[in-house]
Simulated scan of single mutants.
Amino acid sequence: MGKRVLILTAGMGAGHDAVAAELARRMTAQDVEASVLDVLDLVPLRLGHGLRRMYAGMVRSAPWLYEGIYRSFFVSRRPPPASPLTALIAARLERRLREPAPDAVVSTFHVAAQAAGRLRDAGRLTVPSLVLVTDFAVHRMWLHAGNDRYLCPDERSARTVLERTGRPATGHAPVVRPEFRWARRAGDRLRTVAGAAPDDRLVLVSAGAWGVGRVMETARGLAASGRYVPVVLCGRNERLRRRVGGVALGWRDDMAELMAGAYALVDNAAGLTCREAFACGLPVISYRPIPGHGRDGAVAMARAGLSRYACSPGELVETLDRLKDEAVRKRRIRRAGALFDAVPAERVIRSVLG
């Protein structure tokens, strides 16, 4: 393998890591040596671990606090201010770039994009720096004009990035594992796992890898409608799984098979789980999204026609009811599925490597 690429991620939930891992797999298949680095591991004294715990705690127990931080520091048209954290990560990343030196750097997390852009702008990173944006709502922490190129979730977000950075930006196909594309709209694995009757309409309710958000209320509302059987995806939050009154699942490695048997996905984060559902042909409804980027991402997906955003328990049930119309259902699936017609991210990166 003559070329090397370093993929930067951060373990804030599972989405960024999953995208980085799948991208590395695809690059390896194209004879490119790919390595993945969590930039939070570059922070000394395990402070990166502390930042991860602090963020998870805010989203879980003080969402109003995270919302305030997000609105104050992430949402602005002005470039983000230089931060000690970014400077520290950039300095340590510069040392990591020498062992061995990559031919390109790809960031899949916004702090990584800031650190790599800073190094590239200062001439301390001498190879192309690309940013693979994983948020549909592109906030300013993703944006640094020192980066060479941006790969965005869709053309709408790409236009925003180009306008605000002046750097080349294009849409790319979602980076999801291939089994989600192969999944079929039939199968009984989910029905078996849930212990459901043949005519039950099973609705997946996602709480993300950390099991956050008001998903218990969501599940109770769906069950009370008498029309749907909620299956709550609790991620790694075992406490949540024990508290859910109905069907609740912990961390799963067979999500593609489960999605293949679901009626719809009710999501609260607008992250990778939504893209996996799009790949499976599973309609997505955003409801009670987590604050900050979760809410903004849900709005952005709905505006792009990729999903629906329900604002009340009644609206959630009504939105699910409309999916019984096969024409409506196919139209929504087709709109989201068109994302995968865009150029694959690995092809863009391979062209940059030469």
Rank of each mutant, 00 (worst) to 15 (best):
Y66G: 00
V105M: 03
L45S: 11
F73Q: 14
L45I: 07
G48W: 14
R25E: 13
S76D: 14
M141C: 11
I69S: 13
A90Y: 07
R96W: 03
H49C: 04
A24V: 05
V111P: 04
F74Y: 15
S107Q: 09
E99F: 08
R46V: 02
L93I: 00
A137Y: 14
A101S: 12
L23A: 03
V111M: 15
L40S: 06
S107F: 12
V131S: 13
R26V: 05
M58V: 05
S107V: 06
E67I: 07
L40H: 07
S76V: 07
V138H: 09
L45M: 10
P63C: 08
R60C: 02
R52P: 00
R140S: 08
V59Q: 10
R96P: 00
L65T: 09
M141P: 01
G13S: 12
A104N: 03
F109R: 05
H16M: 09
M27F: 04
H110F: 15
R78V: 02
P80I: 13
V19M: 06
H16F: 10
L23N: 07
P128I: 07
R95G: 01
A87R: 10
A18T: 10
G123A: 05
A137R: 11
R92N: 08
P79W: 12
A122V: 04
D121P: 00
R118H: 14
V39C: 01
R140M: 09
F73N: 12
H49V: 14
L85A: 03
Y66E: 05
R71A: 13
L97Y: 01
S83A: 14
F73C: 11
G15E: 07
A14M: 10
R78A: 13
F136N: 07
A115N: 02
P80E: 09
L51H: 06
W64E: 09
S83I: 02
A18Y: 03
D31K: 13
A101R: 15
L42V: 02
L132I: 06
L85S: 02
D121R: 11
F73V: 15
H49N: 10
L37V: 13
V19K: 08
P102H: 13
A29C: 03
S107T: 04
R96A: 12
E33C: 09
L119R: 01
D41L: 07
T134C: 12
P81D: 13
V59M: 13
L119Y: 00
A91M: 02
L37N: 04
L93P: 01
A101Q: 10
A112T: 04
E99V: 11
S35V: 13
L45N: 10
A20C: 10
S129L: 03
A112P: 04
